[in-house]
């Protein structure tokens, strides 16, 4: 992340990591999650789901910070993120 001034506690703050899960059969390809992901984690996949829509797919593995915005904005309850276990533990 780019700061104009590095916060004093930037080293101590642990940024949460998330794993994005997509339920492909529910997705209707509106693209809200792709456009409004604050970390630009998702992209449209060339693959079609059973209903013929292009579902999102994860573009940058490990970039998700588990903010749940995709989960809230998705009109189809088709995407959600869960907190990833830190690599050290």
């Amino acid at each position: 992340m780019k700061f104009w001034r590095v916060p004093l506690d930037a080293i101590e703050v642990e940024v949460t990591q998330g794993v994005v899960h997509i339920i492909e059969d529910r997705c209707k390809g509106c693209g809200f999650c792709i456009v409004y992901c604050p970390r630009d984690v998702l992209e449209e996949s060339p693959h079609f789901n059973a209903k013929g829509y292009h579902t999102p797919r994860v573009k940058k593995e490990g970039a998700c910070v588990n903010c749940h915005y995709c989960e809230t904005i998705c009109p189809d309850l088709a995407i959600y993120s869960v907190e990833a276990q830190p690599a050290s533990s």
Partner: peptide
């Protein structure tokens, strides 16, 4: 999905069109 406990999952996917905002208001 974290909201699956509150939703009748057998009725999902719902009838709302792709890009409709009702689903977001509902979640």
């Amino acid at each position: 999905h974290p909201l699956d406990s509150l939703v009748r999952t057998d009725r999902i996917p719902h009838i709302w069109c792709p890009g409709c905002g009702v689903g977001t208001a509902f979640s």
